[in-house]
């Protein structure tokens, strides 16, 4: 055998050995990767399973909160009238304009501030003081009259039948039981499931 042929055979053997060693090592590494990806898949599956009900729960929470917000906004609009947007703006800066948009009105929002004189006057009137003043004519209320304000006739400082004497207000049922005057709780009760006053 010539020397060149022997070297060729040796080189071919080395090539095959190199292919075998490196490919076997690569296969082993790919096996480790496969096992690691299986663990990843298990973790991701758990995450997907645990987060599956989140959307429904959050949607339900949002619906409940929106119903509560609509309830409070309807009450504010019904009781404060043109001052409602200003009250909302005072409590939550930046929300007054959105409140106007939600009730379909336009105009500038006049911030009431920390003290709401008409509200204080209403409370005083409920305690036996003079009648509260009319709500201030804010620009936001100018375009259209709210449906809520048009539906019930405005009551000037009504004296609830459940109010006990002496200027003390009690919302407890026991305070009215003596005189037997049932409170108009059902007609006046606002329901979160009901329509908004302006709709």
């Amino acid at each position: 055998m010539e020397l060149a042929v022997a070297i060729i055979i040796l080189l071919i053997t080395l090539i095959v050995l190199a292919l075998a060693v490196y490919l076997i090592a690569t296969i082993v590494e790919l096996g480790k990767i496969n096992a690691g990806l299986s663990q990843v898949l298990d973790g991701v599956s758990e995450i997907a399973t645990k987060t599956a009900p989140v959307n429904g729960v959050l949607d339900a929470i949002n619906r409940t909160l929106v119903a509560g917000r609509d309830l409070l906004e309807g009450l504010a609009l019904k009781k404060a009238g043109p001052d409602a947007a200003g009250l909302v703006e005072s409590c939550f800066p930046g929300e007054g304009q959105r409140f106007l948009q939600r009730i379909g009105r336009h105009g500038a929002v006049v911030t009431i501030g920390e003290d709401y004189d008409r509200g204080a006057a209403i409370l005083n009137s409920l305690l036996g003081g003079p009648a509260p003043p009319a709500p201030s004519a804010a620009p936001a209320a100018a375009p259209a009259a709210p449906a809520a304000a048009a539906a019930p006739a405005p009551q000037s400082a009504p004296a609830p039948s459940w109010r006990s004497g002496g200027g003390r207000i009690s919302l407890r049922p026991s305070s009215r039981g003596a005189k037997g005057s049932a409170p108009p709780s059902v007609p006046g009760r606002l329901s979160a499931k009901g329509s908004r006053p302006w709709e």
Partner: peptide, 11 residues
């Protein structure tokens, strides 16, 4: 809110 609706006069 229902109690307030009863207690407070409308605007």
């Amino acid at each position: 809110g229902g109690s307030l609706d009863v207690a407070l006069p409308d605007a």
